[in-house]
Design a protein around this nucleic acid. Structure first.
Length: 322
DNA sequence: AACATCCGCAACCGCCTAGTG
DNA sequence: GCACTAGGCGGTTGCGGATGT
C-alpha cells in the first residue's frame, strides 16, 4: 500500500454536516427505487452532494425503514450490557441482537449512559475486589451480573473461582471467545483447552445467559412498532408525552387514533408496495432548503415519490428533540 | 435572564477486511 | 499473490440543547 489510500471522495466537492430534509428525501427516494448497490456512485446519481460513505451512514443510522425510535427500554439496556460484557465493543454485533437499533446508537448509549451507570454501580459495590468482580460471570442471574470492570473480558482467559481457565488461545484475545460462543449458541468449542468440570459449569451458566438474551430480544420484538403512516407529527407528539412507555401502549391503532384526534388526518399517504416508507429521525428545517426533484438525475418515471412519506407540517419549532 | 458548563448524539475519520481483476 | 476498490466498523469530534449557577 505504498501509494496510500485514495480518499473516498473529494472533500471539497461534497457537503458535510447535518443532513437537510431535502437531502434525506432524495436519498430515500433513490434507495427505495434503486437500492444501494453502490454507495460510491449513489450520491451522484441521486443528485446529492454528499460522500457515498455519508449517504450510507445516514441511511443505515436514520433513514432505514426498520429502525426503532425512542429511548432504549430497560430490557434493551440490559441486553446491551450483557452483550457488551460478552463481546466487547463489537457494536455492530451487539446491534444485530437488537432489532431496529443501530451500532452507532448502541455505541452512543453505551458511552453516555450505560458506562457511567456501571461505573457508579461498581463503585457502590465493593470495588477493587477482583474475585467479586469476576464472579459476575458465574452468576449471571443476579443483578450484579451486569456489573463488571469496564474491559469486557479482554484477556484470553477467564477467572472462575480462583481458577484460571483458558477459554480461547487466540492471541488477539479480546472478545473473540465469547463472541463465538454466542453466535454458535454454545459456550466453548470442544477443542478448547478447558477443564471439563469448569466447562460444564460455565456452559450451564452461559447458556442461561444466552437464553435470557434471546428472551430479551423476543420481548423487544413484542414492543409496539409505530407505523410509518403515523408521520412526523406522531413522533413529535409522542416525543412530547414525557412519560411515554412503549411497553404499556396497546395497539398501533390506539396511537393512530390519538394522533388523528390530535392532528386530524396526516398528510396524504399512498400505500407503498414494499412498505418502504421512511421517516427521518430528526429534522432541522431550513426554509430555503427546498427539495428539488430535478436534482435527481434518474428519470422521474423511474422514481416513486408517491410512496414517500411526506410529513404534514414541520417547522423549526417542532423538530423532534433527539 | 444571562451566562457557563455539561451532556447527548449525529456525523466524520481512518483503519480493516472482503471482494475482484 | 498483488493491487486496488468499496463497504463496514469502531473511535472520536463538534454542535446544539439541557441543566446548573
Amino acid at each position: 500500500m505504498g501509494k496510500g489510500r485514495a480518499p473516498c471522495c473529494d472533500k471539497t466537492q461534497v457537503k458535510r454536516g447535518p443532513w437537510s430534509p431535502a437531502e434525506d428525501l432524495k436519498l430515500i427516494a433513490f434507495v427505495q427505487k434503486f437500492g444501494h448497490e453502490n454507495w460510491r456512485s449513489l450520491p451522484k446519481q441521486a443528485g446529492l452532494q454528499r460522500c457515498g460513505k455519508s449517504c450510507r451512514l445516514r441511511w443505515i443510522n436514520y433513514l432505514r425503514p426498520d429502525l426503532k425510535r425512542g429511548n432504549f427500554t430497560v430490557d434493551e439496556e440490559e441486553t446491551i450490557i450483557k452483550l457488551h460484557k460478552a463481546m466487547g465493543n463489537k457494536w455492530s454485533k451487539i446491534a444485530s441482537y437488537l432489532p431496529g437499533r443501530t451500532d452507532n446508537e448502541i455505541k452512543n448509549v453505551w458511552n453516555t449512559h450505560l458506562k457511567k451507570k456501571l461505573v457508579i454501580k461498581s463503585s457502590d459495590s465493593t470495588s477493587g475486589d477482583e474475585s467479586k468482580l469476576e464472579s459476575s460471570i458465574t452468576s449471571p442471574s443476579s443483578s450484579e451480573s451486569i456489573l463488571s470492570n469496564e474491559a469486557p473480558i479482554r484477556e484470553s482467559e477467564k477467572q472462575v473461582s480462583n481458577k484460571h481457565v483458558i477459554v480461547n488461545g487466540d492471541p488477539k484475545g479480546s472478545s473473540n471467545s465469547l463472541s463465538y460462543s454466542i453466535e454458535s449458541n454454545k459456550i466453548l468449542n470442544s477443542s478448547e483447552i478447558v477443564d471439563n468440570k469448569i466447562e460444564q459449569h460455565l456452559s450451564s451458566l452461559e447458556s442461561y445467559d444466552i437464553d435470557k438474551i434471546l428472551e430479551d430480544v423476543e420481548n423487544l420484538n413484542n414492543l409496539i412498532e409505530i407505523p410509518w403512516e403515523s408521520d412526523y407529527d406522531l413522533w413529535n407528539f409522542i416525543d412530547n408525552i414525557g412519560s411515554y412507555d412503549q411497553s404499556n401502549v396497546g395497539e398501533e391503532s390506539v396511537i393512530q387514533d390519538v394522533v388523528e384526534n390530535e392532528f386530524g388526518e396526516v398528510g396524504e399517504i399512498k400505500e407503498s408496495k414494499n412498505k418502504e416508507e421512511v421517516l427521518p429521525k430528526n429534522y432541522e428545517v431550513d426554509p430555503h432548503d427546498a427539495f428539488d426533484f430535478n436534482d435527481i438525475i434518474m428519470p422521474d418515471s423511474e422514481l416513486d415519490f408517491g410512496s414517500i412519506q411526506l410529513w404534514s407540517s414541520f417547522s423549526e419549532n417542532n423538530s423532534p428533540k433527539v
